[in-house]
Design a protein around this nucleic acid. Sequence first.
DNA 1: GAGCACTGC
Length: 683
Amino acid sequence: MPSMAQNGRVTTDFKQSNQAHNSNAFARREEIRQQRESLPIASVKERLIEEVKKHDVLIIVGETGSGKTTQIPQFLFSAGFCREGKSVGITQPRRVAAVTVAKRVAEECGVELGQKVGYSIRFDDRTSGVTRIKYMTDGLLLREALLDPYLSRYSVVIVDEAHERTVHTDVLLGLLKNSQDRKFPPLKLIIMSASLDARVFSEYFGGARAVHIQGRQHPVDILYTLYPEKDYVDAALVTIFQIHLEERHGDILVFLTGQEEIEAVERLVQERLRQLPESNRKLVTVPIFSSLPSEQQMRVFMPAPDGHRKVVLATNIAETSVTIPGIKFVIDPGFVKARSYDPAKGMESLIIIPTSKAQALQRSGRAGREGPGKCFRLYPESEFEKLEDSTKPEIKRCNLANVILQLKALGVDDIFGFDFIEKPSRAAIVKSLEHLFLLGALTDDCKLSDPVGHQMARLPLDPIYSKALILASQFNCLEEMLITVAMLSVDSVFYAPREKLDESRTAAKCFASPDGDHITLINVYRAAEDLLEKRKWVPHTERNEKIFKAKSEKIFKRWCKENFINGRSVRHARDIHSQIRGHVEQMGLRITSCGDDMLQFRRCLAASFFINAALKQPEGNYRAFGTGQVVQIHPSSVLFQSKVECVVFNEMVQTTNKYIRNVTRIEYMWLTELAPHYYTMQS
DNA sequence: GAGCACTGC
């Protein structure tokens, strides 16, 4: 069954008549009972409950298939941890996991979702006053902590998948440790991890008790190459055909680093297939990566045609986010595209690096979900030993502005003294403090400013976007800025498949503004809005509403396809827009539009993004003011090759070159006028 | 004339 949902990704809807449902209900309950009892964790239920009662902090290392995520909350419920209106909260790094696990547990408990068992994720809350087992994303619990620092509605908080070490997990654990020290109130903390090494967590919590629960995975044979491979793409190709021609049936999963690589391998496989005898050509390739439209992502779940073998070419998305049925063979070249952040340059970069040991293990595990499998690592065993044990925690390779703003809002003033599991570098903290100070979020003595800092902390946005909204209400263009920051907060709305590059470029021109990408994004958003909301006059009845929705959905989908727009991104932007709009209304900001006065809007962009301004150099490239970096306008920008003198931008990324993305033309003089504290008249 | 792994509020 597809394990993806939400945000227009992939959803499955099982429809069943009520009658069939009733006659199956008993059999289904019996089946669930047997499945639960056969889980490795079932036999240690009493012991686990004792451990939780005895220890305020407990670490549970549970291998894949142990059932820890679904069972432990139910154990705690039945042991009385939800008395007096308190709940058990379980965090997940991903939305899909929170939803699917909650649905499963509701079914196991025989209750309707949203009653005793529920979930809460951004834009989708399925809980009620009677919810006692609540699955949620870690980011959401962090937001809850802003309103209720002691998390007083919970008797137990379970941080699941802690080994993934997302920023949210790390901050959450830091906060919980802090409140544990204060010994109030008696909140139990359970850290669940799939990594075999619980030592990091145990030491962090002063030698906390750790227990181990066996998993249930099928054996996976790991095979290494004898010698290092010069070209891992070619090696992967050879291995695909080796498996195809020599191994028994079963689908193949290949881990590659990005869209381009996946598309290249797809072409190469087709080429080589043509050279094989007809009888050996029964092989189909299916790509999957996050920016692929959802209809195409769905293809990985469909079985290959009769007698064919399926080769799934995937990025990291298949490591944890998507579980593909039928995989018996995994090919792991041992590389991953990783994002890192250089605080000194204020620059992000995307680089291809070797995986960690934990990542290699996770990948090979994908071959053993339904039966014994094989994993081909395209490097020698000696190389495996040299890999890092685990992937560098995100908090050590990201911009900390948001983390610091949140911590300040939670009353943590001494960021340098805050007890992180792993401390970010001092330089990274200093840089982000400076940034927040320049945005006016912090006072001279590094306290959250009032009201600006507090307002910024309330908004679930990058701090610079939050500030832009506050300024926009003064510039009378909050309407436009709301759309802009929503669009800047999602993955690119332009989708360009390689084979239709020219077509997609022509389509994108319809929306282009000569002033830059921000206004272009507004144009796209408004065009989509028109399609989804404008309607000829029809009476408002429930039936009409349904027909209208279905119709406009269809029109929207076609429009997306014709214009090479990523519908998922646009919908996401609309969700963010309405959420943020609600927030700024509550804050009492004036939501007005500048109408056609785009000069006013661009001045507001300059006032908001003054930290990210760049000036054209004689050679044609640009020099960023703040960091002195020499950069180019990204080819995806409408201002690419446009030779404008001065711009503001939102991202600086290093790939093959140093690029700025999301760029708008401004006048240099505006900077000295609107951000005099940063731009003196010296130049 | 380039390319954007993946999450999350």
